[in-house]
Design a binder for these strands. Structure first.
Lengths: 191, 191
DNA sequence: CCCGGAGTACAACGATCGTTGTACCGACAG
DNA sequence: CTGTCGGTACAACGATCGTTGTACTCCGGG
């Protein structure tokens, strides 16, 4: 049963991306070396660089995967078809959903770690946040909010605050307080 | 006028801390090398390591300085004596104040960059956020809020959201939306 | 005058980083 | 059977990282 004697075999790309997702989230991007990543993914260094031309490239793919595969509970909540719009907005701030990003939003974390505003990954981050904002606004409009754009922006701020403060404090408490604000904002804009 | 021919001269410690503050904020902690820091501070490598035993040590001092010297506009706003408590709470979200941390709260950024929950700098971060939270709650109580603890926690989330989302988006817009939420929360809790 | 502390110059350390070159292997399709 | 394609092993690259050792200079106070 020495599965990993010759390491993983076929399907290296998925293993790389899965491992990158795990390690980047746990340890951060800068703190995760390519050698460590290869070891954990049971992939040789050479194979990794045949799938991704550089670490920057891998980081880009890592981030894009969250959008492509709807990995984030928040986007899942906003696209549920079994809930009315107002409930979808509230579902974003449900405890189990927010807990999926309690180590901080991967996009925001990447933005902080990279700093260089010109870096390709930063473009991906800004694009994601803009799309998230648009989805919130759209849902707010569908829910009949008085000022959908305002409500969308406000909810985006509260969401970012919950994940960020959780990281800084190392605690999940901010999630509850974020939900209380969201409830208030939504009720005020619709009721 | 070759001031820096033999570099800075006396007072190296202050120059190091000032330069560290500037570079860590602009480029991030990991992206700022010790060599670069020494060059910009007009200080020799050896001198730096006589004042700070390691980079970790310097990062700790860098963070502590924000508290010790009241460098953050937010804490300044909360300790103003010329304003009633409710106005102090609102002053935290004033545009010029929030703009001082629009590149992201230095404490939060440090938490994201370091990742290791056990790292001494992380302790400083958590302590700062806890103190900030306490100051908010205290001021909320003085302002006569119905539930000072709740209002304090809520405002902390909104504040963190403003700075974090500004970083991710590379835009100052979230500041205005944060203020609109804060106004609403404060009015609701007091009025 | 001279001592000592603060600062400097410069080179080098080992470690780790991201990246690439070369040669080889195993499985599946033709 | 044979080609080829995906994967592997391993070593090495140059760069940069944080850190330290050694020897020197400057300046103010006693």
């Amino acid at each position: 049963m020495d599965d990993s004697s010759r390491t993983g075999g076929r399907g290296a790309r998925e293993r790389i991306l899965a491992t990158a997702t795990r390690l980047f989230l746990q340890q951060g991007i800068n703190a995760t070396g390519m050698a460590e990543l290869c070891a954990e993914a049971h992939v040789s260094t050479r194979t990794l660089y045949q799938h991704f031309t550089s670490k920057d490239d891998l980081v880009g793919a890592y981030l894009r995967r969250f959008d492509d595969e709807r990995l984030l509970g928040t986007e899942q909540a906003l696209t549920r078809t079994d809930l009315p719009a107002a409930e979808r907005l509230r579902a974003v701030f449900a405890k189990p959903v927010l807990e999926t990003v309690y180590r901080g939003c991967p996009f925001h974390n990447a933005a902080v770690e990279i700093a260089d505003q010109q870096h390709p990954a930063r473009v991906v981050v800004a694009a994601h946040k803009a799309a998230f904002l648009a989805l919130l606004t759209e849902t707010a409009a569908e829910a009949g909010a008085a000022d959908p754009a305002l409500l969308g922006q406000q909810l985006a701020v509260v969401f970012e605050g919950a994940t960020a403060l959780s990281t800084s404090l190392g605690s999940l408490d901010p999630i509850d307080h974020a939900r209380s604000i969201a409830d208030l904002l939504i009720a005020g804009a619709i009721g």
